[in-house]
Amino acid sequence: MAQENAFDEAVVSEPPFEVVIHTAKTQADWCPITVDQANESPANAYRASKTFAERAAWDFVEKEKPHFDLSVINPPLVLGPIAHNLASLSALNTSNQRIRDLITGAAKDRCPPTGNYLYVDVRDLALAHVLAIEKVEAGGKRFFTVSSHFSNKEIAQIIDHEFPEFRSRLPTGEALVPGDYPADGVYGFDSSRAREILGLEFRPLKESIVDAVNSLLAVEPEIHQS
């Protein structure tokens, strides 16, 4: 997708299509910023690449004035069940690796730090894309699709309550501390536009985690015996 003219044939259709949902982008090849320029942090370079990509889209609309609307869906960390084909949990996406490590015991001695304390369920995120298509008033707007705050400690506690068979593998006591919220609190968020214009009703964390665990067990049922 980073190659010149990569989308020439992809956007040719007869009869013409009405909608394009673009949910992927390159990072290293596209981003005009090096890791050294981003405080020597690959995470910062990744965030910068996403920012530049969105700015490029808005700049295109402003300059070219195409005969279509642009809507942008901005999610935080994405949790929830996996639906795509996955040969093994070693190929799991980064967001759900924390859940895998908790149910397999890999995080028993130390709950991983949460990092980003905002989440959205993957199904709510997918629905947001569809609703942005269906609702005329969504044109020309950005939507922050956030369900709520979360911590890895909360995820561990949900698994402990809903899947007692994994209780012996979960971190407890001081081992949970790294996955808790920071003592001085966390940042806020405003997803009111997604709720009011798109009409989204976000899933609670418990539903996201329970369904995610069940989807991981469907890929590797032997986790129950490991």
Rank of each mutant, 00 (worst) to 15 (best):
Met1Lys: 01
Ala2Tyr: 13
Glu4Phe: 12
Glu4His: 10
Val11Lys: 00
Ser13Gln: 10
Pro15Arg: 03
Pro16Ser: 00
Pro16Tyr: 08
Val20Pro: 04
Ile21His: 01
Asp29Gly: 09
Thr34Trp: 14
Val35Ser: 11
Ala38Ile: 08
Ser41Thr: 10
Ser41Val: 04
Pro42Met: 05
Pro42Asn: 11
Ala43Asn: 14
Asn44Gly: 13
Arg47Pro: 04
Lys50His: 11
Phe52His: 13
Arg55Ile: 00
Val61Lys: 02
Pro66Glu: 00
Phe68Glu: 10
Phe68Ala: 12
Asp69Ser: 06
Ser71Gly: 03
Val78Ile: 15
Gly80Arg: 04
Ile82Asp: 07
His84Tyr: 15
His84Met: 10
Leu86Arg: 11
Ser88Gly: 00
Leu89Lys: 03
Ser90Asn: 15
Thr94Ile: 09
Ser95Met: 01
Arg98Tyr: 09
Gly105Lys: 06
Cys111Met: 05
Pro112Val: 14
Gly115Asn: 01
Asn116Asp: 13
Val120Met: 11
Val120His: 04
Val120Ser: 01
Ala126Ile: 00
Ala128His: 09
His129Thr: 02
Val130Gly: 09
Ala132Arg: 13
Ala132Ser: 08
Glu134Ser: 06
Lys135Arg: 09
Ala138Pro: 03
Ala138Cys: 14
Lys141Ser: 09
Arg142Ala: 12
Phe144Leu: 15
Ser148Phe: 07
Asn152Met: 02
Asn152Thr: 01
Ile155Pro: 00
Gln157His: 05
Ile158Ala: 03
Ile158Met: 08
Asp160Tyr: 11
His161Cys: 13
Thr172Leu: 14
Glu174Thr: 13
Leu176Trp: 12
Tyr181Met: 08
Pro182Gln: 09
Val186Ile: 07
Phe189Cys: 05
Ala194Glu: 07
Glu196Leu: 14
Leu198Ala: 00
Gly199His: 14
Leu200Ser: 10
Lys206Glu: 12
Glu207Arg: 07
Val210Ser: 03
Ser215Ala: 01
Ser215Leu: 13
Leu216Phe: 04
Leu216Ile: 03
Leu217Glu: 08
Ala218Asn: 15
Glu222Thr: 15
